[in-house]
Design a protein around this nucleic acid. Structure first.
Length: 565
RNA sequence: UGUCCUGUGGUGUAAUUGGCAACACGUCUGAUUCUGGAUCAGAAGAGUUUAGGUUCGAGACCUAACAGGACAACCA
C-alpha cells in the first residue's frame, strides 16, 4: 500500500528501481523490453530476504509486462545440491510466482569457456601459478595497491596451452587459475586480476564429470544475465563494487549489457538472515530443520502459517531503497494478522484447561450456533456442542481480580461465547492450593449469548464442552533471538549467545471443539481470543498439532503491564 | 586513514524532480463490540546528520565535515 494519495493527483509513487525502469521504457532502451531474473545459488534454503528479491523481480516483470527468469547460479559444485534446487523451485512457486525461463549458469559453461579463450587471445586473461597465499599477498589491501603476478606476462600461446590443459584435467586442484588482466593498482579490489576459472575435480549436480574447471561467480553471473537478454539485473548492495568488473567483461566480450541496479537487503529485528548461520542452526540442532517454524526461511514461515499473500504484501509495504534498514518484526506480524483476519475460520480451543461444572444445567447435550468468521459473511456458521461440564482457559478465572479484570471471578458473571451467561458460585482447590474446578450457574434465558432483560456483561470468554472436546497439541513460538540484532554480541562471543533458549513451548493437552478433528495440514484458524494457528505436518490421526502463527493483539497484556508498574 | 554507497519521526518508505515534510507500522486517547480481536475517530512524535554555498525559495543542487555500510575467499 505505498499508494501515496497526496491531495489532488493520486499517482502511486515509484521506488527508485521502478523509476529507472520507467525511464528506460520511455527512452526505448532494450526496445522498451523489461526482463528480470531471480538468481539464487542452490546452496541453501530461501529466506524472507530472498522473498523481498523475488517479489521485486517478478513484481517488476508483472507490472511492466515483461519476463522474469529463475536462474540457478550453480558455479560451485562443492556447496551445491539438487535438494536446494528443488526447495527453491517449490518456494518461489508457493510465493505465487511463475518464471518464464528456468536456467542454470551451468547451461552456459561451454559459452563461458569459449569466452575465456577469447579473452586469452585478446591478451586480457592469463594463467597464473601463484599459490593462494602468494596471490593474497600480491593482491595488496584496499588501501595498498597490489603487485603484478610474475606469470602475468606469459605469451598468449602459453596461456592458451595451459588453459586447455587445465580443462583437460592435466593439473591438480588449486595449482593454477585463469585470471583476468585487470589493474593490480585499482582501488577496487575486484579489478585486481580477478580469478576467472579454478581447477576443481568435483562432480557437478548437473554437468556431472564433464568439467574439472569451474568459472567463478563473478565471471559467470554477468555474462549469464547477458546471455538471457536480461535488461535489469537487480541485486543487493554488496555487489555494487563488482559492477565495474561485470561491465569490463561485457565490454571486452562485446555482448548485450544488462543494467545492474543494487538495493539494500532486508533485515528484520530479532531475526538473522545469514544463510551460513541458518545452516549452522540446523546442523547443530538449535532448530528442528530448515522448516522449523521459528526459522526465517520461506519453508519455515510457511509451516508457521504465513500466507503467500501476507508475504507479498509485506514486501510491498517495506519498500525498496539503498540505505541500510531494519524492519520491525511487528510489521511482519501485522501483515499476517491482517490477511488471516479476513480469511481464517474462527474456532474455540482451550490451551490451559480449567474444569467448569454448570450445576443447574441438565445432563444433556445441546447444539449452539457459532459464526465461522464475522469478517466474512460467506463463511457461514456451524453447530457447537454445549454440556454441563466444560473447559475454560485458566487465565480467564481470577480468585482475586484486579479492578480492570472483567472475566470470571467468584460471584461475577461472564458470557460464554455463543452460549450462556454463567456466574461463578464456588471453586475447589487441591492440597497445593491450585484451583482445580469451578462451580457455576447458568441463566437459561441467555441462550445464544444475550439476556432478554438487556443485562450486560463485560467479559466474553471461550470454552469447550468436555465430553465432545478433541485433544490437540499446540506449539507456541517465541522469537529465536533475544537481541534486536542477533549479529551484535560481546567480544569473543557468538551470535548464538543471543539465542532465545525458550523459544518453543509445546502444550500437549489442549482441548478444542470437534470440528478441528481432521483438518488439512497448513490450514489456518483463529482460536478465538488466542491467535492464529495452523495445522502442522506432525499431526496424526489421533492427535492434531497446531502451530501458533501469531497471537492476537493483546490490549489486556498492556493493561496488565501498566498495573505492574 | 584508498575507493564506492548511504544519512528524513521509535521503525520503514514518500515528497510527481527547487515551493516550508506525507503514508504505513508502532505508541497513546476515545467510541464501538458476544473475540480485551476487528472496526471507527483522534493525538503525540521529524523541520530532513552538521557547517557553509547557489537561489526569491533547498529534504532535494554544490562543497566540506561527521556518522553508518560495503570491498582484501581458487564463496556467492
Amino acid at each position: 500500500m505505498e499508494e501515496n494519495t497526496t491531495n489532488t493527483n493520486t499517482k502511486p509513487t515509484l521506488n527508485f528501481i521502478e523509476e529507472i525502469v520507467e525511464q528506460d521504457i520511455k527512452n526505448g532502451k532494450n526496445s522498451s523490453r523489461v526482463h528480470t531474473r531471480f538468481p539464487p545459488e542452490p546452496n541453501g534454503y530461501l529466506h524472507i530476504g530472498h522473498a523481498k528479491s523475488i517479489c521485486l523481480n517478478f513484481g517488476l516483470a508483472r507490472k511492466y509486462n515483461g519476463k522474469c527468469n529463475l536462474r540457478f547460479d550453480d558455479t560451485n559444485p562443492i556447496k551445491e545440491d539438487v535438494e536446494y534446487v528443488d526447495s527453491i523451485r517449490e518456494d518461489v512457486k508457493w510465493l505465487g510466482f511463475n518464471w518464464d525461463g528456468e536456467y542454470y549458469a551451468s547451461d552456459y559453461f561451454d559459452q563461458l569457456y569459449e569466452w575465456a579463450i577469447q579473452l586469452i587471445k585478446k591478451g586480457k586473461a592469463y594463467v597464473c601459478d601463484l599459490t593462494q597465499e602468494e596471490m593474497s599477498a600480491y593482491r595488496g589491501t584496499p588501501t595498498k595497491p597490489g603487485t603484478d603476478s610474475p606469470f602475468r606476462n606469459r605469451s598468449m600461446e602459453e596461456n592458451l596451452d595451459l588453459f586447455v590443459r587445465m580443462k583437460n584435467g592435466e593439473f591438480a586442484d588449486g595449482c593454477r587459475v585463469l585470471r583476468a588482466k585487470g589493474d593490480m593498482a585499482s582501488p577496487n579490489m575486484h579489478m585486481r586480476d580477478p580469478i576467472l576459472y579454478r581447477i576443481l575435480h568435483t562432480e557437478h549436480h548437473r554437468t556431472g564429470n564433464k568439467w574439472c574447471i569451474y568459472p567463478m561467480y563473478d565471471y559467470a553471473h554477468g555474462q549469464s544475465d547477458s546471455i538471457e537478454g536480461i535488461t535489469h539485473s537487480i541485486c543487493t548492495l554488496e555487489f555494487e563494487v563488482h559492477r565495474p568488473l561485470y561491465e569490463w567483461f561485457i565490454k571486452e566480450l562485446e555482448i548485450h549489457s544488462p543494467q545492474q541496479i543494487e538495493f539494500a537487503r532486508l533485515n528484520i529485528s530479532y531475526t538473522m538472515m545469514s544463510k551460513r548461520k541458518l545452516l549452522e542452526l540446523v546442523n547443530e540442532k538449535y532448530v528442528s530443520g530448515w522448516d522449523d517454524p521459528r526459522m526465517p526461511t520461506i519453508c519455515g514461515i510457511r509451516r508457521r502459517g504465513y500466507t503467500p499473500e501476507s508475504i507479498q504484501n509485506f514486501a510491498e509495504i517495506i519498500g525498496v531503497a539503498k540505505r541500510d534498514n531494519v524492519i520491525d518484526v511487528a510489521l511482519l506480524e501485522h501483515c499476517i494478522r491482517e490477511d488471516l483476519n479476513k480469511k481464517a475460520m474462527r474456532v474455540m480451543a482451550v490451551l490451559n484447561p480449567l474444569k467448569v461444572i454448570i450445576d443447574n444445567y441438565p445432563d444433556t447435550v445441546e447444539e449452539l450456533d457459532a459464526i465461522n468468521n464475522p469478517e466474512d459473511v460467506n463463511a457461514g456458521s456451524r453447530k457447537i456442542p454445549f454440556s454441563k461440564v466444560l473447559y475454560i482457559e485458566r487465565d480467564d478465572f481470577m480468585e482475586e481480580p484486579s479492578k480492570k479484570y472483567f472475566r470470571l471471578s467468584p460471584g461475577s458473571e461472564v458470557r460464554l461465547r455463543y452460549a450462556y451467561f454463567i456466574r461463578c458460585e464456588s471453586f475447589l482447590k487441591d492440597e497445593n492450593g491450585e484451583i482445580i474446578e469451578l462451580h457455576c450457574s447458568y441463566d437459561a434465558a441467555s441462550r445464544g449469548g444475550n439476556s432478554p432483560d438487556g443485562r450486560k456483561v463485560k467479559g466474553t470468554i471461550h470454552w469447550v464442552a468436555a465430553d465432545t472436546a478433541v485433544d490437540i497439541e499446540v506449539r507456541l513460538f517465541d522469537r529465536l533471538f533475544n537481541a534486536h540484532n542477533p549479529e551484535e554480541y560481546t567480544e569473543g562471543g557468538s551470535y548464538k549467545d543471543n539465542l532465545n533458549l525458550d523459544s518453543l513451548k509445546v502444550i500437549k493437552n489442549c482441548k478444542a471443539e470437534p470440528c478441528l478433528k481432521d483438518v488439512a495440514v497448513l490450514s489456518s484458524f483463529q482460536f478465538e481470543r488466542l491467535g492464529y494457528f495452523c495445522a502442522d505436518q506432525d499431526s496424526t490421526k489421533d492427535k492434531m498439532v497446531f502451530n501458533r502463527t501469531v497471537s492476537l493483539k493483546d490490549s489486556w497484556a498492556k493493561i496488565e503491564k501498566k498495573e505492574e508498574k
